[in-house]
Design a protein around this nucleic acid. Structure first.
Lengths: 166, 166
DNA sequence: CATCTGACTTGCGTATGGTTTAGTCAGAGC
DNA sequence: GCTCTGACTAAACCATACGCAAGTCAGATG
C-alpha cells in the first residue's frame, strides 16, 4: 500500500482490465453511475426515496418529513414517477374520498442498497446518529458489503472492472 | 405484499421501531443520508470519486476523464479535500518536477460501497453498460448486498430501523 | 350551499452547479 | 532566458434546485 517512489500510501483502487486498462475504451458518457445520478441526483430525490422506504406515501407527508417545500416535492415526485421509481395511484380507505399515493416500484425498491450504503457512510463519517438497521428476524445489525458469487467478501482493491462485451 | 384496502401492491418498506414508530422522534435534520448528500451531493463529486477509485490522481486527468470543466474540477476537488475524502499531496517521480496528486483517504475509500451500489442500480435500470466488477482472486462477479452480523442476506422489507440511544 | 382537506400550482427571488474563454504561475529542460 | 507543462484561477454567464407566500380545485362533510 506504499508507493515505491513517493513513499506515500497508495489508494485502494479498482483495477481496470483488458481494453479498459489504457482508459481509451472507457466511455464516460456510458457510465452507469453517471446515468443513475442523472435520474436521482437531486438531494430531494434521495430524501424522498428514503421517506418512501420509511413507509411514507402521501404528498403532504413527503414534503413535511423530508423538510422540503411543496413545489419541490411536487416536481421531484413527478420526476420520480416519470422515471419509474415511484408509482402514483389513487386509493380509497373505506368511508374516505379517493386520494393519491406514491408507492415504490421494483426499480425504486432496488435503489435501497444505495441509500443503505449512503446511510452507513454518513453515519460513520459525516453525521453520526443513534440509528441502525437491524435484521427483523434475528435482531442483528445490518450493513452493506460487496460479495462475489462465491460469497467472498471483497474490498475495492480486490476488484477488477471488466468489459463484458465489445 | 397486497394492501387489504386498496388491493394494490404495498411497497417493501423498512419498519421504524420503538420511538421512531410515531415518526415524531425521527429527526430529519440529523439524518446521516442527508449529511452524506450535503458532502458529496454534486454530480461532479460522485464522478470524481469514481475516477479516484479507477486510479486517477492528477488534476487534468480528473477533469478530462470525468468530462467536466477545469473550474468545476478545481472547486469540487478542493471541497473533497476539505471534507477529508481526498488528500492533496505533492509527489515527485525521479527526474520530474514536483507535482500534485489527489489520493483517497480512508473516509474516501469507505465511500466505495455507495458507488458500487449506484453502478449496479444504474447498470440494471438506467444505462446498461458492458461493465462488471469481478473478484480478482476468483473471477466471479461482485455485487452489493445487505447482510446482518449472522450473515443472513437481508431485504429492505426485513429491516427494522432502530434508535440505539436516547 | 358552505366549509374543509388533500393535492397540488403559480409566481417570484436566491443559491449553487455548471459552462466557455482566457489567463496566471512555478519549475524543469533546453 | 525561453519554452513547455501541470495545476490551477478569473470573469461572465446560463440552467436548475431550492425557498417562500399565496392560490387553485375537486370531492366529501355538515
Amino acid at each position: 500500500m506504499v508507493d515505491a517512489y513517493s513513499g506515500h500510501m497508495v489508494s485502494a483502487t479498482v483495477r481496470l482490465t483488458g481494453p479498459l486498462d489504457s482508459r481509451e475504451n472507457f466511455d464516460n458518457a456510458a457510465c452507469p453511475i453517471a446515468g443513475a445520478i442523472d435520474v436521482v441526483g437531486a438531494r430531494s430525490a434521495f430524501l424522498l426515496l428514503r421517506e418512501a422506504f420509511y413507509g411514507t406515501s402521501r404528498f403532504d407527508d413527503f414534503a413535511e418529513r423530508v423538510g422540503i417545500s411543496q413545489p419541490v416535492a411536487a416536481a421531484r415526485l413527478r420526476e420520480l414517477v416519470a422515471d419509474g421509481l415511484l408509482a402514483r395511484e389513487p386509493y380509497q380507505e373505506p368511508g374516505q374520498r379517493t386520494r393519491m399515493q406514491y408507492r415504490l416500484t421494483e426499480k425504486g425498491t432496488e435503489f435501497f442498497p444505495v441509500l443503505a450504503a449512503l446511510m452507513e457512510w454518513g453515519n460513520r463519517w459525516v453525521r453520526p446518529a443513534p440509528l441502525e438497521f437491524r435484521h427483523r428476524d434475528c435482531g442483528e445489525p445490518v450493513h452493506t458489503e460487496l460479495r462475489c458469487a462465491r460469497d467472498h467478501h471483497v474490498a475495492a482493491s480486490d476488484l477488477d472492472l471488466v468489459l463484458t462485451k465489445g
